[in-house]
Design a protein around this nucleic acid. Structure first.
Lengths: 301, 301
DNA sequence: GAACTTGACGTCAAGCTT
DNA sequence: AAGCTTGACGTCAAGTTC
């Protein structure tokens, strides 16, 4: 019963089956090349977190000029792409000129994940990169990067990250872009500095957790794959064993059928022997008789 | 080699092992009771989507009065709790008085998930509930529910959902609370109506997808569990088979060692017989001799 | 107590189905 | 074309380890 499932999973996916088995097969079939598992929608420059479409919508109409240099993607997921673009621009101007660096680093990290502390320092890991970017941002907002149709709207829009007023002490800041929102420019550093620190910490934690989640997912996926492979292997091994057992049983049965033949041969031999013996025994009686006759004859003589 | 892993998974989790195997065991051990898998942090009234802490922060300082009736939770995840509270209040006033209804319905749905169309109509499924609530909201905003410190801020805050201006035609509205944001009160229905419709549709879709994702997760989990169980079963079956095979081989070997003894016995039997035959043959020669003597005697006579 | 891990969840995007 | 499903991802919360 179970073998059928695994077999189905291994087989092609022609039948319509929402049993979450064919999904696997289709997946394995769709991923034509090997070892490239999960870079589906990574063509955009970085495309990190763009969930929670709330932003997307809010920023959508307000920052149309920010993300139009990427390939035209869905009108959603703009704020974070804007952020990334911003960060990317900020870093591109500072460290290296390649645009795909982040993606490459990330891919590299994902690829050679087991041993840590790769990419010595120049190519920092994605989280460091982002964290540093977030940290740098605090200063960068003054000197706005190339694209920023900054009106009062930009402040109002980007102000998602900082606790608007000192609302709660906990670092419940959503996003660490670092752009403040206060209308008054006077008491910025006085109040926002600790909050920004907390925000940065939170941001760092989030980024770390993001990467960790990616690792965990990968591990889990590997485990799952291994498990399936193991199941398949065990299954066929089981089948082989079962077949061997059947073969052995058959052989044994045959031998059991053959052993009587052997013992039958033995029996026949014995039979022949005993029959011969019977003959000889008869002959013996004859001998006795002739002895008797002989004795009688001699006595007569 | 593979059996060790599974065995490890089955064994206890005392050793420090980040091999994602013990996770399973710890999980199975931590979930002490049976069949209650995934209701960890569901004690808050509903606690649906509270990711993307961005909101949390934004709303945090602006709607402090909304969510203070719940148990004091982390200052994060407030906007959606506010929404839920609002919805809950709206529903509580309308349909039934229990506060846990949503959670119960959700749990019920999650529990008896396989056959669809349960909970006939009174207890609608969570998505219907939310969708209806979102739909109702459009009318409810006028008559504000108990908690709503509505200034211009509320509009500014809750306006996350509607495309502020008609920015893009696509329904990229984040959240379908339905509260508009426009400063001017005049052209509300004229412009916001279709947008709200799109928002509602998007919201509905999101809710549907939410539930579908839950289903899919559950399925996947079940599949994974089944796979592991199958692997374990196959493994022990394999072990049994292997043991049986070894036993059979041993027996066969023993039989191979025993079969010569049998043929030896046969050989002994034959030996005895042949020895007896030799005796008899000797007797036969004696018979011949006596026959000869007899014949001679008779001739002499 | 900080850092890491991971289960759970919501969201998105892509695929598949009707 | 609408709907469902699911892989991937980010986030959170709880647990674990140092």
């Amino acid at each position: 019963m179970a073998s059928s499932k695994l077999m189905m999973k291994m087989s092609s996916s022609t039948s319509r089956n929402s049993d979450l088995i064919r999904r696997k097969s289709s997946n394995s079939s769709s991923s034509s090349s090997s070892t490239n598992h999960h870079h589906h929608h990574k063509h955009p420059s970085i495309r990190i977190n763009n969930n929670s479409g709330v932003f997307d919508m809010t920023v959508d109409g307000l920052l149309p000029t920010v993300h139009n240099n990427n390939e035209q993607q869905a009108p959603e997921s703009t704020l974070l792409d804007a952020e990334i673009t911003l960060l990317d621009a900020a870093v591109r101007t500072s460290s290296n000129g390649g645009q795909k660096t982040v993606d490459d680093v990330w891919k590299e990290i994902v690829a050679g994940r087991s041993c840590k502390q790769e990419v010595p320092d120049e190519m920092m890991t994605l989280e460091d990169f982002l964290a540093k970017a977030g940290a740098v941002e605090e200063e960068d907002v003054k000197i706005p990067p190339p694209p920023l149709p900054s009106e009062r709207l930009s402040g109002g829009i980007f102000s998602f990250d900082n606790p608007i007023h000192p609302p709660n002490v906990d670092g419940v800041v959503g996003f660490g872009i670092g752009v403040d929102e206060m209308g008054g420019r006077g008491k910025r550093r006085a109040i926002l500095e600790p909050l920004d620190k907390a925000a940065q910490q939170r941001q760092r934690r989030m980024i770390k957790n993001r990467e960790s989640a990616a690792r965990s997912r990968e591990r889990k996926q590997a485990y799952q794959a291994e498990l399936e492979s193991l199941a398949v292997k065990l299954e066929e091994e089981n089948e082989t064993l079962l077949k061997a057992k059947a073969e052995q049983t058959r052989k044994r049965y045959k031998q059991l059928l053959d052993l009587p033949s052997r013992s039958e041969a033995c029996y026949h031999e014995e039979q022949q022997l005993t029959s011969g013996i019977h003959l000889l025994v008869n002959a013996q009686t004859i001998v006795r008789l002739s002895n008797y006759i002989l004795r009688v004859s001699i006595r007569v003589l």
